[in-house]
């Protein structure tokens, strides 16, 4: 239904992007989670662990972390694209290890892995769309 609507307004690309940012259809979200898991196992698991728990004091947890499930997804996308090497407090704790940039991942892959971590373990949050990743990548270039 929603897709039809989007197709209908396809010529109006500005509006199209706006819609894409607002919501990802449930079926797409599920597919994104599945694809995202593969990326997670390859790129994230070593540090953030199988249960998303991270490592106390060294690697930040993803499960239950405020920044991971936040409505503002920009911060999360930026961390994946730029890595993390600042001393920042995350839910009352500091983490020592640097995180490398994963900018070599495609926009779709970043959207998938972030949708996966936002919907795994105890996390329940909206999907991250390709358009959202694209928009942030354009900003930081």
């Amino acid at each position: 239904m929603q897709r039809k609507l989007l197709f209908g307004i396809l010529p109006f690309t500005a509006i199209n992007v706006l819609f894409a940012q607002k919501s990802v259809p449930p079926a797409n979200k599920q597919k994104s989670i599945e694809n995202g898991k593969t990326i997670y196992l390859q790129r994230c698991l070593a540090c953030h662990q199988a249960d998303g728990g991270g490592v106390p004091h060294l690697n930040a947890p993803l499960d239950g972390a405020t920044a991971v499930v936040a409505d503002d997804k920009g911060k999360l996308i930026r961390i994946v694209l730029k890595g993390m090497s600042e001393r920042v407090e995350i839910d009352g704790e500091y983490y020592g290890n640097n995180m490398a940039s994963h900018a070599d991942l495609k926009d779709q892959q970043i959207a998938d892995v972030l949708t996966y971590i936002r919907n795994s373990w105890t996390n329940k949050a909206s999907a991250v769309s390709v358009a959202e990743v694209k928009a942030i990548r354009a900003k930081i270039k």
């Binding site: 662990q49 199988a50 249960d51 728990g53 991270g54 490592v55 106390p56 947890p61």
Partner: peptide, 10 residues
């Protein structure tokens, strides 16, 4: 407190 530790925080 675990036989096998699969995640550090556990």
């Amino acid at each position: 407190g675990q036989e096998v530790v699969t995640s550090t925080r556990g």
